[in-house]
Amino acid sequence: MAKSQSSIPKEKLMWMFETLVLIRRFEEQAKREADQGRILGTHSAIGEEATPTGICAHLRDDDYVLGNHRSHHHCIAKGVDINEMMAELLGKATGTNKGKGGTMHIADATKGMLGANGVVGSNIPVATGCALSAKVQNKDNVSVVFFGDGASSQGSLHESMNLAAIWDLPVLFVCENNRYAESTPFEYAVAGQSVANRAAGYGMPGVTVDGQNVIEVYEVAGEAVERARKGDGPTLIEAMTYRYHGHFGADNPMGYRTPEEQKYYEDKDCIIAMEKFLIENGTATQEQLKAIDDDAKARVEKATQFAIDSAYPDPSELLSDVYIKYP
């Protein structure tokens, strides 16, 4: 891990480490829940923790984040309560969405998390609209949408980039390029072999960043968020990352990639790299980092117990929330 560590406040660095670890432990538990058949498989974000962590480190509660089908890490980085998230996964009334949305739709408006989304590319225009709202109301909050390399081929991204660019909207388009759309390789599906380059066509900055390096993501995001807050318009960020597991619970990724490739990325693991960085720079000791990890494990265990102990929604909830009022 490289540069300018001195410019990043210690509490920010430590928050990022805590967030990376908390996401990892949460996702490991979600996988265990699925493996034990208590829930349907989720879309695991293990391996991809650094991108939302480095970006959300710059965000406030009144900034917006919108996600996709693989969004637990976006939610945690944006500060959504993990007790409520785990309860949502288990379909309980205490969940973020009262058990109605589940893994692909976790949302918490009080934290500015306007939802994961199961339809690829579907949230990109919505995020653009959140940014429009900020601009029309003369507010300085920003909007961030996370999507995969798969979604970069959807018209919704291109239409949104054009809108955001002509109106100078405060939005960050963040592509988490994990190299596979389900099992379809990036090299096969994305012409020009770059998502970031597509920004040029819309006259906005397009930046490629190492998505396994939280410090680099943090620095790139800092510039983009500042640009957006100042009213200078959108940025497209392509974070090169990797998901360690399959597309969803039951998918075995060894059907489309080699163990050598997997190892190459696992060797660049974002948590191990950050650990090394913090220790080498004297920001924290091994013991302190272990204590943080232990704390994350304890929090996830507590969240799981909270979820297990919570009640399922009342059957009447089937018909609530369809409308606010429907005479």
């Binding site: 379909g91 309980k92 058990g99 109605k100 589940g102 399922y312 929604p313 059957p315 018909l319 369809v322």
Partner: peptide, 16 residues
């Protein structure tokens, strides 16, 4: 099905 979107949790989904 009722005039409502489809819920995630099994206890409600089976009622749909």
């Amino acid at each position: 099905a009722p005039h409502a979107s489809i819920p995630y949790t099994s206890v409600l989904e089976q009622l749909h």
